[in-house]
Amino acid sequence: MADVEQVLRETVRKLLQEQKVCRVIGYARGSSALRSTPVFIEDEKDADSLVFDITCGNNLTQYLKKCGKAGDGRVGIVAKGCDGRAVVQYIAEGQVKREGILIIGIPCEGVLDHRKACDKTQGREVSEYRIEGEKVVLKGKDFEVSLDKFDVLSDSCRRCRYPSPPVHDVFITEPKEAASQEPECKEFDEFEKLDASERWAFFENEFSKCIRCYACRNACPMCYCEECFVDQSNPQWFGKSTDLSDTMIFHIVRVLHTAGRCVDCGACERACPLGINLGLLNKKVEKEIQERFGYTSGLDPDETPAMAAFDEEDKQEFIL
């Protein structure tokens, strides 16, 4: 990873030097060893503060809306597969202009789910970590644990099909091939086999934890509405209380609104302070959209997003 970081810094420095971009959005080391933070690099001298590793989970795309619009030059963005797909989706949805963005693709090995790591360390503070093959070694005061990387990865990374951005302008080292088909996801398949009342009970249980903090929404790159439906008062679509029906409907609508747009970056799940399984519904919907309409979000900026398009021959077996 050190190599990747070196190349990244060098590339960014050069891009700024040559004024190919006026600004680069990337990651810097955060408040602790396992945290990274978004950073905007405008001065080539600051390029060395860029990092890229397993802790770089934030989807940076959402910052594009804030700093990628003004006509002051092209903006570079460090993009994992999911970030890159989100950028493509932004272009398709007119949120940014293709020519205003320089996508710096970066090879992603998956990102850390802090909650999983935290479980493994029983909440003890980790002061440093290192990767040893398929293992992650976490080290802190008086302890060191070696874990299977897979066990501490975000759920979305475990089932990731597109580790490298399908559309990019430069790439740090070599892009990874997309998986030829959807990677297996045992959890998902097994969940689908449960009977309806069990599934319902599962979601009731999950969503009853929700405190309506909207961290999921705030972290989501695709939730870019000026005013989220849930905050609107005219009409007031649903209650803002934590009545279970209100909460569940909020989450259902969140999924409907990201349908055909979600890039499965997992930002929502990682942002949730209560560890609610938010990705499952999105996953189901994206799978359905792929099967039904043959559409996968974030691959082609010129393709009409699935929910804004139709085909006269769309299946309609569910219609009386």
Binding site: E93, Q95, E227
Partner: peptide
């Protein structure tokens, strides 16, 4: 216009 994000889904619909 205050609420519109210009995503264009309406244009397509």
């Amino acid at each position: 216009p205050d609420r519109c994000t210009g995503c264009g889904v309406c244009v397509k619909a």
